[in-house]
């Protein structure tokens, strides 16, 4: 579904992404793990069209999308829950969801999807009229996820959805991610919480200072000695 070949990204002289290639197949949960500063966020931002690569190609469903802008990428079904949630703080929960459906015109479908989001995240239904900035961290994460779902993505990126959340909530978020995937959305998940991510992932890539150093199925990597030492705390 998504294929990245030889992607290079620079910030001025900093070579942040050094020729990575990765694939996400339809229906999968693929996770990209790695230490802080490895280049995971930059990778997602580049695929979403927020950052221009210096070289390399990105194809989605067989079409080269390297030169599409961010808006066109949303239109063809790529959506992102960015790192740090990035909800629109002085807009209401409902307005945030509405913006998630910005490119859609099917009013009836949008209304149905509000219901879908509210069923998945009942707390958002209670907080509909509240400013997004007044929500707790976990609620904001849910809002960011609901907002991303409102575009009806085929492929959903999540950038560190567990960051800063209490363990119980982390479990809940991962259950929801699994469920979103079960309902047909392909997922590329970036995480520092490697053990949780590897448990739900079909396949995984490990990133270190701009390069992909390891890849395999979630099960394989969870067993791998290297991974255990570096990311799973022993």
């Amino acid at each position: 579904m998504l294929e990245i070949t030889n992607l290079n990204v620079h910030f001025g002289v900093i070579h942040a992404i050094k020729g990575i290639s990765l694939t996400v197949n339809e229906g999968e949960i693929v996770t990209l793990i790695g230490a802080n500063g490895a280049g995971k966020t930059t990778t997602l931002r580049t695929i979403s069209g927020l950052k221009k690569p210096t070289s390399g190609t990105i194809t989605f469903e067989g079409n080269d999308i390297t030169n599409l802008d961010a808006r066109q990428r949303v239109k063809i079904g790529i959506s992102q829950v960015p790192e740090g949630r990035r909800v629109f703080s002085t807009m209401t929960v409902l307005e945030n969801l509405e913006l998630g459906a910005y490119l859609r015109r099917d009013k009836a479908g949008i209304n149905k999807d509000y219901q879908m989001v509210f069923e998945r995240f009942p707390i958002l239904a209670d907080r509909k009229k509240q400013m997004a900035g007044t929500l707790s961290g976990g609620e904001q994460q849910m809002l960011a996820m609901g907002r991303a779902l409102m575009s009806r993505p085929k492929l959903l990126f999540l950038d560190e959805p567990s960051m800063g959340l209490a363990p119980l909530l982390v479990q809940e978020i991962f259950d929801i991610i699994k469920d979103i995937n079960d309902k047909g959305t392909t997922i590329l998940l970036v995480e520092q919480n490697a053990s949780m991510a590897l448990q739900i992932a079909d396949r995984a890539y490990v990133m270190e200072t701009g390069k992909i150093t390891l890849s395999g199925t979630g099960k394989e990597l969870i067993q791998s000695e290297e991974i255990k030492k570096a990311y799973l705390g022993g």
Partner: peptide, 22 residues
């Protein structure tokens, strides 16, 4: 719609782009 896009861009340009706002 465009007014909400304006507010979104002024709050967070990158997040607005992720919504498909030009």
């Amino acid at each position: 719609r465009i007014g909400k896009a304006m507010r979104a861009v002024s709050l967070d340009g990158d997040a607005a782009q992720l919504m498909g706002i030009s």
